[in-house]
Write a protein that binds this DNA or RNA. Structure first.
Length: 295
DNA sequence: CACTTGACCTGTCCGC
DNA sequence: TGCGGACAGGTCAAGT
């Protein structure tokens, strides 16, 4: 799914596209995708204006004038796509920029119509994603929000804090710890592999075996790949598109993710794919070795 | 408590 | 061309 850079890109698009628009209608066929009751929807979504769009970790928040917030998790295959008109065809002029042909399509779970006829579609092929209408002041009290680790790109987040956070997971692998949203928020499978390659750390290294300089380097690499990806509009591995239905371009810059069989950009060794923390994991086998046990 | 594994879904790709 | 199995950007609950 959308990891931090993809959700950030969607957020930036929605900020431009839906702020000040007033919701007038909603279609939702799926209780899991949008579990709120009809009275809640009628009272706090219909007739409300969008006043802000925010992101925390991989979660999107659309604040409404009703003092309610749409909290949205895209999970693996979720998309939030805005269109100006109800009859939509994508990709006419720029076929390679878009994955979506027309909307709604068979993955559409929720459709919100605004006063001027424009629409916001929540599509999700695998149905893992969800959106929920929550009083704005209660958002930060939601259980999973409270447990989230710090934002890796926040200006006051230091290498020291980064290293500190990993101490609580010293017995697991660095990849599992990076993916743990309560340690650091927003890292997923793509940027875990990309940043571990950048820091020349084997993903199966025990966290407790990493030195401070190694963790400090990993900190820089996490921030580097995420900032670069935001600049490129995120990664489209399969389904991801931004708020206008366009693909992200980070995969053109990826060094190891889904590059198995291709040469390592630093040393030319063939990239291999292994399994770590239950996830497909891409490494340069020459530069990312398991650190030897310390004496 | 810390950690790992399977489940949640649909679609696609790969080997037979 | 068809069919079975593995796998896919993420979390959770349940297991050890």
């Amino acid at each position: 799914m959308p990891e931090l850079p993809e959700v950030e890109t969607v957020k930036n698009g929605l900020l431009r596209l839906i702020v000040d628009r007033k919701a007038v209608r909603i279609n939702s066929d799926n209780h899991k995708s949008f579990p709120n009751s009809r009275p809640d929807v009628d009272n706090f979504l219909i007739g409300a204006k969008v006043i802000n769009v925010r992101r925390r970790a991989k979660v999107l928040m659309i604040d409404l004038s009703s003092k309610y917030t749409l909290v949205i998790h895209l999970k693996m295959t979720g998309q939030l796509v805005f269109t100006l008109t109800s009859e939509v065809r994508f990709g006419g002029g720029h076929p390679t920029d878009s994955l979506i042909k027309n909307l709604p399509d068979k993955s559409t779970r929720v459709e919100i119509e605004f006063e001027d006829g424009s629409k916001l579609y929540f599509n999700d092929q695998r149905k893992f994603g969800w959106m929920k209408l929550v009083p704005t002041i209660e958002v930060e009290d939601m259980d999973f929000i409270k447990k989230l680790g710090p934002e890796p790109l926040s200006l006051d987040f230091t290498p020291k804090q980064f290293a500190e956070r990993f101490k609580r997971r010293s017995n697991t692998t660095i990849k599992a710890a990076l993916l743990d949203q309560t340690v650091i928020a927003g890292v997923g499978n793509i940027y875990a592999d990309e940043s571990l390659w950048g820091a020349k750390i084997h993903p199966a290294t025990r966290v407790g075996d990493l030195s401070y300089p190694e963790l400090k380097l990993l900190y820089s690499e996490v921030r580097y790949v995420m900032n670069l990806s935001i600049e490129k509009g995120g990664s489209t591995n399969r389904n991801y598109v931004d708020a206008e239905g366009k693909k992200g371009k980070y995969m053109d810059f990826a060094r190891v993710f889904r590059k198995e069989g291709q040469p390592c950009p630093r040393c030319g060794t063939e990239i291999i794919k292994i399994r770590v923390a239950g996830r497909g994991t891409h490494i340069c086998p020459k530069e990312q070795k398991l650190s030897k046990p310390k004496i």
